[in-house]
Nucleic acid binder design. Structure first.
Lengths: 361, 361
DNA sequence: CTGTTAGCGCCTTCAG
DNA sequence: CTGAAGGCGCTAACAG
């Protein structure tokens, strides 16, 4: 026969029953050493490579797979080191639990411009789904998962009934950063924000309080800055956390034509991610400004950016791998029937070389 | 009953047989519209979310999962945009085939320093495995997969019997790049290479021909450069394709102390990846050298590096997404029983602003 | 310690 | 067009 050998083939070859053969592989029961050896020998002669995963899965009702929904296409999502480090922690943690990670691209606009949920999310078998970039209001992905009754862990988003949550204390982080700037003497700052919701363009925000902000990190960080003692004199929304977007924002914000009276100019730029901040630094230098002598720049995330050279970005560091691990633990809890969990991880201000005293006019 | 409803529950509710209910969902057979409606209605009242993946998988013998073996830990692998863009093409292609991608970290050194294959590779169910960074000699991962009789697609590596292969014509790319430099007037170049095999340290290579090179892209690109009309006066091996590694290499190579006679100094540095090349450019500038006036720099891959500012790296571009798609097609071919395939994709020289005429002494 | 039995949920013949 | 039956490969009771 040319078909792949099954456990019952092995059992027959070894002259034992199927269940005995099963025990010989799983080790989950009393079995004589000699019998086990005989079974393994039979397996070797038949070229049997161990219990078939499908049979075991059907039997156990478990896929051994966690679906990880990334924000977008792989390429765009993973240009952000934040996603990658988190994923690293998640994969390591789940790997120890014998769980594999299946990547599921987030939503995409189809030909007609409508949002479409990736088919994998609709049909593919998974024990738990992790939305690493949260869920927005009436998120169709969440609806699909609810219908399929797949348990969900949300990273970094709004709490959602029935879903576990892993968040960070970003409000506090931004508050500390604001205090740092205030203490240095800054009063007027510009804010380079993350996107407010899906499918946004870059641009000025006149009244941040009037905007609907559908993405939690954006809202938390923006509100925390507004609530600080600093005066936010300009808010520029970016379409994504990318170096280019940060550079674009800086070119707008630092344009001298925008500040007829130099005394109105912001003395610091707070970017809501390190990639954005890196773009701000690069663009500021291209425009002939020194950082931090002419303008201070701060970021958020605490990722390592080799290309800023010897500069160390002032930023709020979040524990990215721990966040990934926490997501993994939340998955574990759900699978063990321990139910929905919520965690908020701490962040920490890291003072680097890109913030200093404001320039004297 | 609190257990999840099954197809037979739905069939009972709808007053039809299981097989009829099955047809109502799969649409793979003749069924009366009215019957189908009745079945769907029953499903709705029971909260049945469609056929269970496990049952279907066992029945079909397919997992619907492709295991993608990345080089290392997620974090380290995905710092390289090359991996990410390839993965993007692969995920998109497989998603259309209704196949999910499961990430499998490559090998890791365990506590004792020995190589260990990730347990997911040993036990997790997958229809095909893709080794995106190839296989080395006596690769234990390949042995595991062979034993489990999982079909394998290799990206960018040595051909291996029984495995499909997707490669690029990197020898030709390097040859064209060498000609470009030669035509500009360069004669002496330094080579910043990718690692020769696993677990290497950074360092000078005195006699490249004497080294055992276990990784195909490294070997191809190194040999192609040696075979060109250029004189490779220095070879520096890096431990990984990273900006920092490129910068380290450049600091060594450009150290004036190394070239007592300036006429011996290489006038161009050829780095075997764009990340390495970016590091070379940054380090050269830190050392007060202009690129390309004082030293020309070229890379390989053709990825977009926002942080080189207005410079465009001279490089050999490879079609990364197409490579990912080709990997997906190779997977498809294996699953359709069309057997092992081999593809070599073309590359193209892209002349940017980092190469120019050699300096006049 | 080992064998027997009964499914896990589905799909696909094959009859009707 | 619909129903009945068998089996994909495995494991967990239970009985010996």
């Amino acid at each position: 026969m040319s078909r792949r050998p099954t456990l019952s083939d092995v059992a027959r070859e070894a002259g034992v029953s199927v269940s005995t053969a099963s025990l010989a592989f799983s080790g989950a029961g009393p079995i004589a050493d000699q019998t086990r050896e005989r079974v393994h020998a039979a397996a070797a002669t038949l070229g049997y490579a161990g219990p078939n995963a499908l049979g075991r899965q059907l039997r156990s009702g478990r896929h051994g797979i966690v679906g990880v929904v990334i924000g977008d296409k792989v390429k765009r999502s993973f240009r952000d080191p934040v996603s990658i480090q988190m994923l690293d922690g998640l994969v390591s943690t789940l790997s120890e639990l014998r769980l594999g990670v299946m990547l599921i691209p987030g939503m995409e606009h189809d030909e007609t411009g409508a949002m479409k949920v990736d088919p994998l999310l609709e049909t593919s078998g998974m024990d738990v789904a992790v939305l690493i970039w949260g869920a927005h209001l009436d998120d169709p992905r969440l609806e699909v998962l609810r219908r399929r009754s797949v348990p969900v862990v949300i990273g970094e988003g709004n709490p959602s009934p029935g879903c576990s949550l892993v968040a960070i204390d970003d409000r506090r982080g931004v508050a500390e950063l604001a205090e740092h700037l205030y203490a240095l003497g800054h009063r007027r700052v510009a804010n380079v924000t993350l996107p407010f919701r899906m499918g946004r363009q870059a641009g000025w925000i006149e009244n941040p309080r009037d905007e609907e902000i559908d993405w939690t990190p954006t809202r938390n960080r923006l509100e925390a800055l507004e609530e600080s003692r600093l005066d936010v004199v300009a808010t520029y929304e970016t379409p994504a956390s990318l170096v280019e977007s940060g550079a674009d924002a800086a070119r707008q914000i630092l344009d001298p034509a925008r500040w007829p009276n130099p005394a109105d100019r912001p003395t610091a730029i707070v970017a809501q991610s390190d990639l954005l901040a890196a773009g701000v630094v690069l663009a500021a230098r291209e425009m002939g400004m020194r950082v931090p002598e002419d303008v201070s720049v701060a970021g958020f995330d605490g990722v390592t950016l080799p290309w800023l050279g010897t500069d160390l970005l002032t930023t709020v560091t979040q524990p990215l791998e721990a966040k990934g691990e926490a997501l993994g633990r939340a998955v574990e809890a759900l699978l063990e029937g321990r139910g929905v969990t919520e965690v908020v991880l701490p962040v920490e201000l890291r003072v680097g070389t890109t913030t200093g005293m404001p320039p004297v006019l």
